[in-house]
Each structure stands twice: as C-alpha cells, then as structure tokens.
Write a protein that binds this DNA or RNA. Structure first.
Lengths: 236, 236
DNA sequence: TCAAAAGTGTTCGATATACACCCATGC
DNA sequence: GCATGGGTGTATATCGAACACTTTTGA
C-alpha cells in the first residue's frame, strides 16, 4: 500500500554517556515517577523552525543546563513500526497529541562529566545515570539505539581522540583515563603501553599536583590542554 | 516562535558513486529535460509504511534496475531553510503537492559499476554520470551533501575495504584498483607499495587471464573473491 | 611491614614509507 | 627500436603488543 507519502513528526533522541570511574553510564529520564523502571532516552519532537542539531542541543540544555555539549548525530531510525506498540502509542497520545501513527527519530551521541551538577529544566523531572549493562527495557527502539551508540562512540574517538576528556574531570589521573579506555573498548589495555600512548598525546599535560590522602602512592594529575589540541588540529 | 512541533515530509537522497578509470563520478538525474544543467541527486519522499533504508533501496532500484545495491546511510539534513529557496519551493509544489514548507532528508551513499547498463524506470527519464569536480549547482543543499559524501566513502572503506570492488568491473587490473584508490583519497600512492598492499588482501585473487591487444606489456586481471572475504569477516 | 595502586623500558613483529630499474607488447 | 605502461625488492621508520618489577603511601 505504498500510495501516500509520509507526513510525520520527527524527533531527536540523545544517548548521553558518562563515566563513573568504573563503567560507562547513560543518562536516562523517568517518564512515570511512580514507576522505577519507566525510563527512556531523553528526546523531543523537533519544532517547526528548528534544525535537528538545534533540537538535540535544546534537549541537552533542558536536561543539563549546559549550553554547548559535545554532540554527534549518528543515525536516523525510521522503521514504520518503531512506534507501533500499544503502550508507546498511548504514551504519544498523552504526551504530544492523538494519532501520531509513526515517528521518525534522529539519534545523537553526547558525552558528559558524570559528577557535573545537572540543572534539569525539562519536563522529565527525574534523571538517572544508568550503567550501560543495566539499562532496562525501554520504549520504542531505544534499546536498539543504545546498543548501536557504543560503536559510534568508538568511531567518534577514532576521528577525534580528544573528545574522551569530556568524560573525565578537569584534573584526572592516568589510571582514570586508562579505566575509561578499557570501558569504552571493553578490553584490558596494558598499562605500560598505555602510559607511552598518553605520553605521545601533546594535549595531555602533567600538573604539579598529586593525589592527597590516598593509602597508596599518590598519582599525578593531568589535564586536557585544549590549546595544544587546537594547534595540533590546525597543523594537520 | 518555537511553539509548534514539526509535521513534515521526509525524503531520501542518494549519492551514487561510479569510477570511470580516471575519476569518481556521481549519478545525477535531470529534472527538466529542456535544461542541460538542471540536475539533482536522485531521491524521493518516503512512503507511509516505508523505512528510510527501504526508500533508498527503492530509489536506487527505480534508477538502475538493481535490486540490492550497496547502501549506507550517512546523515540527516534538516536545516529549516534547506527547501526555502523560491525555485525549490515551486518545484516541490509542482512535483509533489503545494505548501511543503519544509523538507527533511536522509542522505545515503551507494556505489555502482559505471559501465553497468542502467534500467531506469524512475520518473526522471535522464540520468547522467557527472565527474565529481564538475558537479553543477544543484537544488536544495545537494551540493553540500555531495561535498560531505566523499569523506563518508573513505570512512566506509576503512570500515569495510571490500566495498571498493563495487566500483570496478568483475575483472580488473591492479592499475585500475590503484587509480581508484588515488581518486578516492585524492593523492598519489606509490605503485610498489600498492602491489604489496593488494598482495596482502586475501579477497583479491589473480586470474590466469591477461589484457589482450594493448600496446604495452599486458596486465594481469584480478577478481574480488567474495567467499574469501566472508571467511575473513567471520574469522574476525 | 603489609596492602594497594603508581610508575617505569625493552624487545619483537607488523606495518607504512621511500625509492629505481627491467619487462613485455604493439606500432 | 621505441614508446607505453606492467611489474618487482630492499632498507628504514613507526607503531602496537608482550612482558615484571620497584616505588610510594596510609593503615
């Protein structure tokens, strides 16, 4: 019955990654405050005069209070039945308007320091950092989107290695960076080789400061040097 | 005036690459048969019960008669003013229906053997292989899409090196493959190193056959061995 | 003095780069 | 025999992978 052109709503959905020093987490929103497990990806229908990139920025701003978050579009999901489960239709009816029979979404990645205080002014009052391997069943194809997103994060890092620092505090130890890489690539990475790798990154610079009050040898802090990184980029 | 949610049409546009033994070409369609330069990317609004991937497949099938072409979604273009030029609006009015004030598109890449006989049953009767560096001014943001597409082709090859053979005849010489790589990466590649590289590809196998009737030493033909490639993939 | 994590070098193999000459064929 | 493109090998640099012990600190 391919007779009519689609005339539809379009949404954005954001997979926001955070890193808790052990594993990757994803920022989810709770639709129903009574239901502990009713989580979904933060997203929104896009407005009339709005680009999809702007819509994703808006969603992230309302969710976090951060104006310019790292952002990367990674795929349009448009299966005709992605919004056809009765429960999902019901929710769309209530949340937006009746008779949205189909919904196309554009998925975005973003990265966020997990301990950053979030200033949530979105309609979803509760947000939750959820470890990647404990993500509950979610509406629409949000589980599928999350599944695909990790691969995209890896591609993103390959394209621009400096974005991983969006996931770390301003001051971090090599060990933290190491655990982050292990979490992203889901494999153990030899620590000596890793030190060499970091030493070869001109945009990671050592600070004079060290950890205090740790019951083992104190680790040196490092920071990400944005200027060195920009210089590197323009030289290429 | 962000008060209303977008309710819109969605299209797909395909950047189909071909290789003429010298340079990359893109398959364009002529909108106006009276006007030599009125070319655009092949594309279509998507249907009601159709996924975007299926829509791209449909467009390519109608354009070429080929059922399963290589296909890769690469980006959603949704700037609010991408369809706001008067000439573009006029064309949308005529082509589809009046008052399409906005149009979101999902761009796809595809690769095609340039000498393949195309069985075009689309509404655009005339198609044209256009060298990448001679692409005329096109409607909407099609020039922008083409500009971005080459970078995506390179990423695609990095992800799956075997797709380049979609651009070559079934039998090809190393020299053809060499020129193809040079065209894609837009740089000269040392031919001896290139031979080594090809020798390391288990899915490129030499045939007994050689060129005939050439006024120089005849080159050996090679073919792409899909089975060797699949075995390689499953082993990884 | 012990537990816990930090920090540090060398070797090897694989891979990328640079570079120049002889070979086969048709005219 | 000459013009044209086909085909080949070696040396060097770079990168990634494997691998184990000493240092520092607080408890």
């Amino acid at each position: 019955m391919k007779t009519k052109f689609i005339h539809t709503y379009v949404s954005v959905d954001c997979v926001v990654f955070g890193f808790d020093d052990e594993q990757l987490n994803i920022l989810l929103v709770r639709r129903d405050e009574q239901n502990a497990n009713d989580l979904k990806l933060p997203g929104s229908l896009i407005y009339d005069e709005e680009d999809v990139d702007d819509a994703a920025n808006r969603v992230l701003f309302q969710l976090t209070g951060i104006k310019k978050m790292s952002l990367r579009q990674f795929r349009c999901f448009a299966s005709p039945d992605r919004a056809s489960k009765t429960e999902d239709k019901k929710w769309l009816d209530k949340e937006y308007q009746p008779n949205i029979n189909r919904l196309i979404t554009v998925a975005y990645l973003s990265l966020c320091k997990i301990d950053r205080k979030l200033n949530n002014i979105s309609k979803y009052k509760e947000t939750e950092w959820c470890p990647m391997n404990e993500v509950p069943r979610m509406p629409f194809d949000h589980n599928r989107i999350v599944k695909d997103s990790l691969i995209e994060v890896r591609r993103w890092i390959e394209y621009d290695p400096s974005i991983v620092f969006e996931l770390l505090p301003n001051k971090f130890t090599i060990s933290q960076l190491h655990r982050l890489y292990e979490a992203i690539y889901n494999k153990t990475i030899d620590i000596r080789n890793f030190h060499k790798k970091v030493a070869a990154m001109p945009y990671v610079v050592a600070l004079d400061e060290k950890q205090a009050n740790v019951s083992h040898r104190a680790a040196r802090y490092y920071k990400f040097d944005r200027k060195a990184n920009n210089k590197l980029k323009t030289n290429i």
